[in-house]
Structure formats: C-alpha cells, structure tokens
Design a binder for these strands. Structure first.
Lengths: 164, 164
DNA sequence: GAGAGACTACTCGGATACAGTCTGTCCGAGTAAATCCGG
DNA sequence: CCGGATTTACTCGGACAGACTGTATCCGAGTAGTCTCTC
C-alpha cells in the first residue's frame, strides 16, 4: 500500500508555484523538465489539481498553471486528496455480518448504529494521518526551502521559471 | 491507495483467536467458512501472520492457528504490518535533486543531512497513522464485541469454533 | 492387546491465472497569444 | 498603419499499451494425529 508517484510530483509542483511571484503561470512542460519527469504523465496530476480547484490554468502560449488561492490556504491534504482520492485507506466490507451464528434477519446487530470495532480503529488511524497533512500548508515548505538552500541557487531556481 | 482486503480478514481472524480459550487451535477452513472468504487466499494472510510470529501453527488434523502471545501484546500495527509490509506509505524519490540549477556535484545540498521537506511531512503523517494502530491491542476489540453482542450470539459464536 | 504401518486432515509453499491499477505515451480538439498579410 | 486571418504554443481529454500488484485458485510436499491390520 503506497501512494502514487504523482502525489510526490504534485507536491513539488505546488511548492514551486507557491514560491514564484503571485499569479505567474508555469507550463506543464517547464515543470516536467525541471523535475525530469514525463510531461504527459505529470499533466495528469496537474489536471487533478485543477479539477480540485487548487490551481487554475490558462490556454494558449504563455499559458500554464498557477495557484488558485494563497499558498497558506492550500494544505498537503488538499494536494494528496486531489491526486489520490478522498476515500479512506481502509474499507470495511462488513464481513462480521457473515457470522453463521447470527440469524438472517439480525441486520440490526451490525447496522451503522453499532459500527464494526475494527473499522472504527482503522478509521481513527486514517483520520490521524489526514490531520497531520491538513495542518501543514504548502507555504511552510517554501519557508524551509528558502532557509535551507543557498540564496544563489534559490534565486537561480526562481529565475529558471521566469520568461525572457 | 487502499489497504488490502487481507488486512481486514487478518484483523477479524485475530480477534476470533483472541476471544477463544487460550491455546485453542483454529483451522484455516473454519476461519474461512466463518467469514465466508476463500480459504486458500485467506491462508496467505494467515501465513503472513505466522511468518511475523503473531500466530503459531500446528500441522495434522486438529491443527490450525493460535495466537503466539497474549492478545493485549498484539497490536493493530503488528497485524497490518505483517500483511501489508513495514514500508512507509510514501517513498521520496529525491526529485528535488533534478533541479537543473543545482551544480552536478551539489549532492551535499540534498543529502540525508537536509532531508526533503515534503518527505518529512509525509513521514510524520505516516508515523501518526502507525501510532494510533500501535496503541490499540487486539484485545480491546474483544472487549467491545463482548459488550455489544447479545450474550446468546456471543456464546454460540465461540462454540461454533470449538470441537466436540 | 500392542505395535507397526497405512490413512487422513491439516499447514506450508510454489505455480499459475486473471483483473485492476499505476505508469507512461500518443493524438486530436479547443483556445489564446503572437505573427503575418492585405488593404 | 490597421484589422483580419494564420500560425503557434499551450491545456484538456480520451485512447491505448505495458508493468506491477492484488485477488483467487490449484496442487504437491510435509506433518501429526487416527485408524487398521497383523501378530
């Protein structure tokens, strides 16, 4: 059970978009070349972000993507769920209802009113995972990058994306 | 990104083993019929538990599985990791090192000493998930089952597994 | 009645098959900026 | 010099293929109880 590669790519692309001046569009091509990942496939991840309304796109030349809202209003969870889906990582198939000792009509014993104890624990864990992601905005990564990377490389990186 | 079905099955099987009298062996066949799950496939999950030394098996007739240690010493995390593997749900491929602005020899900038900020957050979330699972022993589910299920059905269920 | 051998029921592990998802590529349609061309 | 047509560069969406993983089945080898058969 492992998250897709696209999750990692989407997160890196979002931090790039967050680091650049507000409103600057960046093309899929540029993002793909920068990270050395297949352009057409990365495009799928960006489309997912677009559909989740985390980024917005413009067509035509000079087109591309930019964040749809402030970088501190976009969390890791937003990005992960956009790419990976919002479903929990555990799905209860209610196999407890297959207990041959339970009468056929005893659906009430296994109804939503008495959720499966095992599923409850798994859901709680899933929520803990999502909570951490929800508490971390994309902007926080920009800060650490700005602090950790030598200013020279940081400036060159930002310039790399700017036209002319 | 979703956990395997086998995880759910393994957890349910473990709670059954935990609920039965200490040391009682239960065959794969019985567990499979009880949960209405393919026997040969369930057997794979049980083998994984066996390999992780959470359960122990005996061959021959009256053979089967039983818990290898007390039910309050076996956590959800033990079972999940036995079936699903111990690896984190996010793997960092270090695509930040592909930044074309970084000189070829600047490996030190992206070394373990400065872990990728994005990966750090993902690992933190993964740890939060595992922490919840590690804090919940299998025995806790037995308690809630005993409390929620009418005693009649509970007794019949335990009897279902006992030879005689 | 006792002991040796055959039998049975189970686990274990490997081999195999099928479906679904992940990864990656290709192409056509639509769009907006830039360029070109004719008046 | 200006306005309309063409070109260009991008997004978007669908179709497709290959690899990998998850799901499921089957079978043979090994093992421990049980049964049978012989003395």
């Amino acid at each position: 059970m492992q998250l897709k590669n696209q999750v990692e790519w989407a997160l890196h692309c979002c931090t790039i978009l967050a680091a650049l001046p507000d409103g600057q569009y960046v093309s899929t091509k540029a993002l793909a070349e920068f990270h050395r990942v297949p352009k057409e496939y990365l495009s799928k991840a960006l489309q997912a972000l677009s559909q989740a309304e985390l980024v917005e796109s413009t067509l035509g030349p000079t087109g591309g993507y930019r964040l749809a809202r402030a970088a501190d209003k976009i969390t890791f969870l937003d990005v992960v769920e956009a790419v990976e889906g919002k479903g929990p990582n555990f799905v209860c198939t209610e196999i407890r209802a297959n207990n041959p000792c339970l009468p056929a009509g005893a659906k009430s014993l296994v109804s939503k009113a008495r959720p499966c104890g095992i599923a409850s624990v798994m859901y709680r864990a899933d929520r803990a995972w999502r909570d951490v992601l929800a508490q971390t905005p994309i902007s926080s990564i920009v800060s650490t990058l700005e602090r950790d990377l030598p200013p020279k490389f940081w400036r060159e990186t930002l310039d790399w994306f700017s036209p002319d």
